[in-house]
């Protein structure tokens, strides 16, 4: 073998291993260069994801709006028969609908005044089971910053952990690195809500003497200032006092379906330690 070629493979292996260990070391030191590299990769690959997602949505809309209607037309003829029966109820429904619309507008207004937000669309998820994160289509250019909370109409989604020029990375509350101060709505007992991967969280450091029951709502306490006080994290789905130790094992299921998010709101307030009303 040529002397140059003899050392090629070992040299390659050593260089690759060196690169990986350097990257890991830089990652632990939160190097800005790595953050830029991540931003570059996401900025290069996310537009494709966004485009494909748009094509998929358009195709779905076309199907629902046109092809599907061919079948719907047949059903429509049958439903005409039932229509007369429901006409009487329609007036009542319309009244209720109008009241609902008015209340929704009021609620939206209240939200807008209390917390300035940016609307964002979720364009990608981390498909591995190792972390739970999502990429949204709002970034530094739109004023998104690290640490900002992300909400959905049903409750808290997570917070921003990476900001790139046009995109941001959201760490979902079920991610194993996620932790936030939370309280049980009914008894005001506080604990630390930790992500457990999959679609679960756990309320930790709650003493066994505390009254926590299945079905209790878990809210953000607002104490550390990560999430706005009073917003919903989820519901208690299991509470075990029979485990060893001084704390209960409390499982919390998020109120938001974190695997099928479409639109979210990024709260544009850096520090959210609101005073008690």
């Amino acid at each position: 073998m040529h002397p140059k070629g003899r050392y090629r493979i070992p040299l390659l292996l050593v260089l690759t291993l060196l690169l990986v260990f350097s990257v890991l070391s830089l990652s632990l030191k939160r190097s800005p260069a790595l953050s830029k590299l991540q931003g570059l990769v996401v900025s290069m690959t996310a537009p494709g994801m966004e485009g494909l997602s748009y094509v998929g949505r358009s195709a779905k809309q076309l199907w629902l709006g046109y092809f599907y209607l061919v079948g719907v037309r047949r059903q429509n003829a049958e439903l005409q028969g039932h229509l007369e029966e429901y006409k009487q109820r329609e007036v009542l429904f319309q009244e209720a609908q109008q009241a609902l619309t008015r209340l929704e507008v009021l609620l939206d207004l209240k939200r807008q005044v209390a917390l300035p937000v940016i609307g964002a669309r979720v364009i990608a998820y981390d498909p591995s089971l190792w972390s739970r994160s999502a990429i949204i289509n709002q970034g530094k250019a739109q004023g998104v910053k690290e640490g900002l909370p992300v909400l959905a109409p049903q409750g808290i989604v997570g917070r921003i952990v990476g900001v790139y020029p046009e995109y941001s990375k959201v760490m979902l509350i079920v991610d194993r690195k996620s932790g936030a101060d939370a309280m049980v709505q009914r008894t005001r007992i506080r604990g630390m809500l930790k992500g457990k991967g999959g679609n679960r969280c756990a309320l930790e450091f709650v003493p066994k003497s505390a009254d926590v029951q299945v079905g209790d709502l878990v809210l953000a306490s607002g104490l550390v200032g990560l999430y706005p006080k009073g917003l919903v994290f989820g519901k208690v789905t299991a509470a075990n006092k029979k485990n060893p130790g001084v704390f209960q094992e409390i499982e919390v299921t998020p109120s938001v379906d974190l695997s099928t998010l479409e639109e979210v709101l990024v709260v544009k307030v850096a520090t959210l330690a609101f005073p008690e009303p």
Partner: peptide, 28 residues
């Protein structure tokens, strides 16, 4: 082998960029 190593770096980097795990975990 160089192709496999280079591809492992590219794909590891892609996975790490979308995850919240420490950068380099998927790479390794």
């Amino acid at each position: 082998l160089p192709l496999a190593l280079a591809l492992s770096l590219v794909l590891g980097c892609l996975q790490d960029s979308y995850a919240t795990t420490p950068f380099g975990l998927h790479l390794g």
